[in-house]
Amino acid sequence: MRRRRLVAVLLAAVSVGGAAAGCSANPFGGSAALTVYSGRNPNLVDPLLDMFEKETGIEVKRRYGGTAELAAQILEEGAKTRADVFFAQDAGALGALQKADVLGPLEVGTDSVPARFKAPDGTWVGVSGRARVIVYDERTLTESAVPDSVFALTEPTWKGRFGIAPTNASFQSFVTGMRVLTGEARTEKWLRDIQANGVKEYDNNIAVLEAVDRGEVDLGLINHYYWFETAKERGKDALNAQVKFLGNNDPGALVNVAGVAILKGTDRRKDAQKLVEYLLSTPAQTYFRDVTFEYPLVGGVTPATGLPPLTEVSGPQIELADLDTLEDTLALLDRSGLT
C-alpha cells in the first residue's frame, strides 16, 4: 500500500511539474532572444535587463551562476556556446576568456570609459567599479590620523586594532594587486607582518564593517559600497564607522570592475552590441550608482554623494586582467597562514 502511495506521489510530482515547466519561462525555447550568462546576482541584474528590454524591445534570456563556473562552462561549450553576452563579476574572468580566444571585438564606443577599465584589444569593457577603502571608528580616530597606506598597518601604533576578511574574494584580489605591484617577497612580508601585528580576521566585509562600528577594532579594510549601503540603510549619522580612501597608487586603493564581453560566435551581434551600449548609457550607469552604490565608469555620470571622483581614486596602475593569478595569491595566503 505504502509503496503504491510513494509511486503515486512521485508520478503526481512529475506530471504536475512537467505541466508547469511546459508553460513557464519557456525552458525549451529557441534562440530568438539574446542570451546573457551573468555571474552577477539576479537581484541586481534583472531590473537592469528589464529596463533594457523595455527600451529596445529585445528579449533577454538570463542564465545566472557563479562568474568562475560560467567562465568554465563557456570554455567547455567552445563554439557551441549559447551565450551571446557574458556579464562577469570581475575582470579576471574576462581576461581568462580573452586569452582563450572565445571573445569577439565589442565594436561599441567605449571612449568614455578610462583605458584601465577595459581590455587593450577591445574584447571587454568594465561597466561599474568598486574601490578598496579603509573604514575607521570616528569615536577614537580623526580622518587625518587614519593611515594613507596599507603598509602603515604593520606599525606598532595599530597593533591589534584593525580587521580584514582574508577569505573574501575582494581581499584576495587586493593581495593579487599588491603582488603584481610590489612583488611576491614584499607582499609575503606584509602578510606576515600584519599577523605579527595582531590583525583580526572576519568572515566577510560586512562583519569587518560591523566590528569597526561597534568599536571592536579601529580600522578595517573593505569594499566601498558596503559602507554606502549600510549608511543608506541606517542613516549616515547613526554610523560610528567612517570611510577613507587610501592614497594614490597604494595597493589598498585598488579599483576593480564588473564588466561585459560579446562572445565570438554569437549570431546576435547587433543586439549584443545594443546591450553593451545600454550598460554604458546614463540610465544604467545611474542605476549602478544609486542602487548598488558602485562607481559609474563612464565620464559624465557623477559618483554618489560622498564618493570622491574616480580620477582622484586612481588606485594602483595595473592591468585588471592581470588579476588572474589568484592561485598564486591563495598559495601565498596559505603559506603565511591567512586562510
Partner: peptide, 16 residues
C-alpha cells in the same frame, strides 16, 4: 511556486 514545481519536475524525473 514556480521554483517548487521546477524542483518537483527535475527531482521526480531524476528519481524515476
Amino acid at each position: 511556486g514556480e521554483a517548487a514545481l521546477g524542483s518537483l519536475t527535475a527531482a521526480g524525473l531524476g528519481a524515476v
